[in-house]
Design a protein around this nucleic acid. Structure first.
Length: 881
DNA sequence: TAAGGGGACG
DNA sequence: CAGACGTCCCCTTAG
């Protein structure tokens, strides 16, 4: 049997554009070592590779537009006029597409005077005649006119492709393929500067074609239309309409010099592809090839010495130190080997030799000896758990690269190195494998070699990144905040928090009964058994079987999210049960079962606070996340009863900042009215309500007014639009806009801040917090509305959320210092963004209460006071004043 | 194994 | 057109 005849045709420029904008946020960090941007090449490569894998074509071609002008310009000069020129970051990538395609083994073609569309249209026609199945990949909607029984057009969309078939076209637009040019002729196409008929958009074009079938028939029978403005336009602009159609019609008989036989797809040319990947620094692709058997490994061979006896002359001031672990949870992971050194010399040993060496331990602990690291906290924790105290870690290339750009998610030495033009470190996956197959390599020297190269890289990158930090004015942020914090967090993590398993198990039984009952109830009301946890099955039950109105769709089906179900609550008695089931089921799986599984042998939970994840500078918490323990519902809040103090007679003590983000905003914006309200000690939401509702004083503020003011205050911090506010207040968009206008009028300083910070982001390309934490916003000047407005909201929010994060981080460092200095036994356990949680002996409560207030409220001097509230109790649930 | 939906927190 | 910032985790489903 002959191979299936399948032709894949791709629209080169259109896909390149999509790839470029799809990865627009990566522009900043996707460059090869020569500084060439690579995001479009990367995205295009992935798109094409995925499609090839999916459809397994026998023939393939990428068509490109040849030049600026085509035959269409001969009869319409302005065709594609007014188009923005291609961004420089993209045009510099264009010459390399050919190289990439040669590596992928795909033919490419362009034809003077014609567009890629015409090449594709002509070949698709030929293919149809020869009995091929054709798939066309493009981002350009015009190509819909090519669909047919054996020709499918796949349009790019977020995260994949939409397959357009004649049936789809009929269903979604009510059009046949032949009607597409007529449709575009009527409504026009702004992206190609095709004018169309004035006043006719999508809807009218559709209904006209529905009625008359084609543009020609429409003009023959124009008198059937009732007199209207639209009819006048049609008459007046007949010539434009016909011209527009002509422009939108793909030429399926273009004089191409290739035929389908030339397009046979032979598969990848690995040699060419590898050299392309190397040129572009596509390390992950290289890695994939390697795992499938190709040897391209090129790690620099750093000389190292394996030691079994550690002597003093090996240990100096200002060396890099690193413990290798193959799993990310350093509380549990084994340390496979320990290494230290500098550019000249690297030593490698085992963790057992290191921990038994008094010489090594003394060096590690010596506060006058500086050590450089990758991930200081991981090193401190993993060493501490083995009796080695690691002091004076004076640099951390992981933290440094995060501070230089908070969006940089490098989380290995190789990543940081690659991101800073330092080559020669193999990716860990290459040495250790990935997923289930992760293991120490044979022979073990391969690992020692790898770790030695990391140590050298840490040492050398320390100098380089330190320089970059100084240039950015961020040296202090590392030295005075992040590095000291790493040590504080390390202690908190190792300490852990005591969780009462028996208590959780009791909850588990209770919740299970409720869940069983609710499930039964739901099945009864639905009239059949199904998995309530499956949004897909639930959607079918609610919207097909039971026929309730569809409120919103997701990309895969019906949305059954909470706010959707809320809207059905009145008419659908089943949704109460579903909502309750969801709520309890969440608590049961994530917080009861989930937390039980995380309790260590010491009866405590040891989370990890991630210091380099959140792009605003906040911490995050994983394995488990202890920053989202339920509090908003009573059932959920019960979980907190299981978090207790470790000793009899001790208490859990919690202090939280009141409105720290709004206070920070008042300070940054210098808005006089908001500042005054905080200074006067007013309830800020009431003060806002009084201001925007024109009240004499806060006494006449009703609870509803306060609630609305609170919504607006929060919305402002997030850069909310009129639409967003109207949704959350349940008012019209117009009313919401009026609210916002009044708000800005009454708080002009805040309005100025919003404008200034956006301006600044556009000029500099980044925003900063009060303490110089930096976040780049590559999309701030994007042409795409969503990307740009998202970047603008981020510009507004990041300095606020990020400065608040800076402040509590400083307070944590200070608290740890003071607890020690004042000889308190109390210990800090957790941070939840604006809140610190301690355990404390009862007789220290008064002292702790005073200390925490002093530290947290005075850690920085803003234009407004900082205030905290503190509570304590036997567990995290019972924290009364 | 990865992606999407959904939901917990500040 | 979509549509309030920042996280992490569980479950189901598709590959």
């Amino acid at each position: 049997m002959t191979k299936e005849k399948k032709l894949l045709l791709m629209d080169g420029h259109s896909l390149a554009f999509r790839a470029f904008y799809g990865l627009a946020s990566q522009i900043g960090n996707m460059k090869n070592r020569e500084g060439l941007h690579t995001n479009a090449l990367y995205g295009f490569h992935n798109m094409v590779e995925a499609k090839i894998k999916e459809i397994q074509p026998s023939h393939a071609l990428v068509a490109f537009d040849a030049g600026k002008t085509t035959f269409r310009n001969e009869f319409f000069e302005d065709y594609k006029g007014g188009r923005d020129t291609m961004p420089a970051e993209l045009s510099e990538q264009m010459p390399y597409f050919r190289e990439l395609l040669e590596g992928l083994g795909i033919s490419y073609y362009e034809l003077e005077n014609y567009e890629a569309d015409d090449i594709i249209g002509t070949l698709a026609k030929e293919a149809e005649e020869q009995g091929f199945e054709t798939i066309i990949m493009t981002g350009d909607r015009d190509l819909a006119q090519l669909v047919g029984e054996h020709t499918q057009v796949d349009f790019t969309k977020k995260g994949g492709f939409d397959a357009i078939t004649p049936e789809y076209l009929e269903e979604s637009y009510g059009l046949s393929p032949e009607q597409v040019p007529d449709y575009l002729g009527l409504k026009g196409d702004p992206s190609d500067n095709i004018p169309g008929v004035k006043g006719i958009g999508e809807k009218r074009a559709q209904s006209l074609l529905d009625q008359f079938g084609s543009l020609d028939v429409l003009y023959e029978r124009l008198d059937e239309l009732k007199p209207s403005k639209m009819k006048e336009n049609l008459i007046e602009q007949e010539e434009t309409a016909r011209l527009s159609r002509k422009l939108a019609t793909i030429d399926r008989t273009s004089p191409i010099q290739v035929s389908i036989d030339d397009l046979e797809y032979p598969g990848k040319d690995l040699e060419k592809l590898v050299s392309f990947y190397k040129e572009m620094d596509f390390d992950s692709h290289l890695l994939n090839l390697n795992l499938s058997g190709l040897d391209i490994e090129e790690e620099e061979e750093v000389p190292y010495q394996w030691v079994t006896d550690i002597s003093e002359d090996m240990l100096k001031n200002q060396q890099a130190v690193y413990g290798e672990m193959l799993a990310d949870n350093y509380h549990r992971a084994a340390i496979e080997c320990v290494a230290w050194g500098d550019s000249e010399q690297v030593y490698v040993t085992s963790i057992d030799i290191a921990r038994e060496s008094e010489t090594f331990k003394a060096w590690a602990e010596d506060d006058s000896i500086e050590k450089y690291s990758f991930d200081a906290k991981a090193a401190i924790v993993s060493f501490l758990r083995r009796g080695i105290v690691l002091n004076n870690v004076s640099f951390d290339i992981h933290l440094a690269s995060y501070l230089l750009s908070a969006s940089d998610h490098s989380d290995s030495v190789a990543d940081v190195a690659n991101g800073h033009n330092y080559r020669g470190i193999a990716m860990d996956e290459l040495i250790y494998g990935k997923g289930k197959k992760t293991a120490v390599p044979e022979p073990v020297e391969k690992m020692h070699q790898h770790v030695a190269s990391k140590v050298k890289a840490i040492y050398e990158l320390t100098a380089q990144l330190n320089k970059e930090l100084i240039e950015n004015g961020q040296e202090d942020l590392l030295k005075s905040i992040e590095l000291p914090l790493a040590k504080v967090l390390a202690k908190m993590e190792v300490r852990g928090i005591t969780v009462d398993a028996a208590q959780l198990e009791e909850l588990q039984t209770q919740f299970q009964k409720i869940l069983d009952h609710l499930e039964q109830e739901i099945h009864e009301k639905a009239g059949e058994e199904f998995n309530v946890n499956s949004p897909k099955q639930l959607g079918v039950i609610l919207f097909e079987k039971m026929g309730y109105p569809v409120i919103r769709k997701t990309k895969t089906g019906y949305s059954t999210a909470q706010d959707v179900l809320d809207k059905l609550q009145r008419q659908a008695p089943i949704v109460d049960d579903i909502l309750k089931y969801r709520q309890i089921s969440k608590i049961q799986s994530t917080y009861v079962t989930g937390l039980l599984a995380e309790i260590a042998e010491d009866g405590r939970i040891h989370t990890r606070f991630l210091q380099t994840v959140a792009r605003t500078g906040r911490l995050s918490s994983v394995a488990p996340n202890l920053q989202n323990i339920p509090i908003r519902t009573e059932e959920g809040r019960q979980i907190r009863k299981a978090f207790t103090a470790n000793h009899e007679g001790w208490k859990i003590f919690a202090s939280d900042y009141s409105q720290i983000e709004l206070r920070v905003m008042a300070h940054i914006s210098r808005d006089e009215h908001m500042t005054a309200a905080f200074k006067a000690g007013e309830d800020i939401h009431s003060a806002t309500a009084a201001r925007i509702f024109d009240l004499e004083d806060t006494d006449s503020v009703t609870p509803n007014m306060r609630r609305d003011a609170k919504t607006i205050n929060f919305g402002i911090i997030y850069g909310m639009s009129d639409y967003g506010l109207s949704e959350s207040l349940g008012i019209t968009r117009k009313a919401a806009q009026e609210f916002i206008d009044i708000y800005f009028e009454r708080y002009p300083g805040i309005k100025n801040y919003m404008d200034d910070i956006k301006r600044e982001a556009k000029d500099k390309g980044y925003v900063e917090t009060l303490f110089h934490r930096r976040r780049y916003l590559p999309d701030i000047n994007a042409r795409n509305f969503n990307q740009r407005t998202f970047a603008e909201r981020t510009a507004i929010n990041t300095p606020i959320q990020g400065s608040a994060a800076d402040i509590i981080k400083m307070a944590m460092i200070e608290m740890e210092t003071h607890l020690k200095k004042e000889g308190l036994q109390a210990e800090m356990l957790l941070q939840v963004h604006d809140e610190l949680i301690f355990e404390v002996p009862s007789d220290e409560i008064t002292q702790l209460n005073a200390l925490v207030k002093d530290v947290m409220e005075n850690i920085v001097d803003l234009d407004v006071p900082l205030e905290i509230e503190s509570h304590y109790g036997d567990n995290w649930y019972d924290t009364e004043d």
